[in-house]
Amino acid sequence: MQVPSHVEYERATSVEHALELLARFGPESRVLAGGHSLIPMMKLRLAQPETLIDINGISGLSRIAMEGDELRIGALVRHAQLLDSALAGEHFPVLHDAERVIADPIVRNWGTIGGSLCQADPSEDLSAVFGAIRATAVIQGRDGARAVPVREFHLGPYETVVAPDELLTELRVPIRPGGGSAYEKVARRVGDWSVAAAGAVIWLDPASGTPTVSEAGIGLAAVGAGHFVAEEAEDFLRGQPVSDEMFARAGQIAAEHCTPSADQRGPADYKRHLTGELTTRALRRAAARACGQEA
């Protein structure tokens, strides 16, 4: 049995209480949400926090709701809850696509959306998805809340803009009609991290005869894409007519601009190839959904 080193435990009862505890115990404390990354790291002693601040008892952070023209997803929403949410799936099928291939049902039952983003693993699927759909992260500090676009949320591997005395509380995603989205992932086995993955969201301009792309978002996981997105490919697509050829070219552009590294999941050239292939596939499916041709 792998056993962690000594750790103190505190249970937060509200966001304010959590922030107070974070301030009191300082940078050597860690927030415990689902714990599916943190606890294994503690058991391997790769992480040795002095204090765990358990936020699972905080109410109000587990909500998925529409407010105005925004979809709001609480940081404590479990993966399974997001996968079950008809509301989330209706507006962003990419969320359901991704959740279906994240880890396994046991992890999804307890792992949280906020935890996934804050862990900032370079292979995290949700970082790519929320990047693609241009979500905004709401980060609460003792002096108030700030909103940070997810595309500015990550500072690097395992590093985010959330300060040690702050808490990610919510994700907000703007809703615009006429869009479609999809997620494509290749893993060596179900439950494994992505070898590479691509999420796409696309909005079409219905005015013209052949629909054209009015806006696109492309997120990439596990391939060293800056902020988990493929901006160059997005720029290329804007204003282009919808066609397999355009999507293939966008895929090529995404592949050219990512910086994958070799590991036991595959060599860099394979991951680059996958980036192109999966981006193309995700765009095709997203467009089909936008046109109402696919569920």
Binding site: R188, V195, A262, D263, Q264, R265, G266, P267, Y270, H273
Partner: peptide, 22 residues
């Protein structure tokens, strides 16, 4: 025969699987 190995085989240069992939 991981996805990477199959793709590399299709490219005509399968990996040596007992060593680290570089």
């Amino acid at each position: 025969l991981t996805p990477a190995q199959v793709w590399c085989a299709i490219q005509g240069r399968p990996l040596r699987t007992d060593l680290a992939i570089t």
